[in-house]
């Protein structure tokens, strides 16, 4: 406290008490308090089937940024309802899926995308599982080859088999 000018006002003190009691989250933005334009489940008119498909797909794949972890599709937050309105308007105006996604990313960042973009820093996210699948296949082949050799060496004496096992394990 370098300056007494910034002492906490009574409201902040009340907030602090609420925080201690766990009744209120002081750091969280108050995003959900206001109703928005398109409530969940609101029937909407579209000019074409494609527009409706595009709208429905977008609200499933875009994240409500004030919510904990919810798509726009199911969120009751005011912001989600507004963003649904924005997507609806842009869809009716003839914007493509890519244009709408670009619009959202330009304002809210990549965080809004439930389908992360494919680029340098998400390369391992998309490729990783398939690299692991290949690695799993190689391990499978390696182990099977080893055990095949063991199955063939059945006629060896126990000592010889043990020696072979050691040999193979250390390779």
């Amino acid at each position: 406290m370098r300056s007494s000018r910034w002492n906490a006002p009574p409201v902040a003190a009340a907030l602090a008490v609420a925080l201690v009691l766990g009744l209120w989250s002081v750091t969280g933005p108050d995003g959900a308090a206001q109703a928005g334009r398109i409530p969940v489940g609101m029937p909407l008119e579209f000019e074409t089937e494609e527009q409706e498909q595009q709208y429905r797909r977008l609200i499933r794949e875009l994240r409500c940024t004030v919510c904990q972890n919810q798509a726009l599709d199911e969120s009751n937050a005011g912001l989600a309802a507004d963003l649904r309105g924005q997507i609806y308007d842009m869809t009716l105006e003839g914007n493509s899926r890519e244009e709408i996604v670009e619009f959202m990313v330009a304002r809210y960042g990549d965080f809004v995308l439930y389908r992360p973009p494919f680029r340098a820093d998400t390369f391992m996210l998309w490729i990783g599982p398939f690299l692991l699948l290949i690695a799993g296949g190689l391990v499978w082949a390696q182990v099977v080859r080893q055990r095949q050799a063991m199955a063939r060496s059945r006629e060896l004496s126990p000592e010889e088999r043990a020696a072979l096992e050691r040999l193979e394990r250390d390779e």
């Binding site: 108050d30 995003g31 004030v66 912001l79 507004d82 963003l83 924005q86 304002r107 809210y108 960042g109």
Partner: peptide, 9 residues
């Protein structure tokens, strides 16, 4: 607000 990327107040 949407133009500014506002997600909470």
């Amino acid at each position: 607000g949407i133009e500014w990327g506002v997600y909470g107040t």
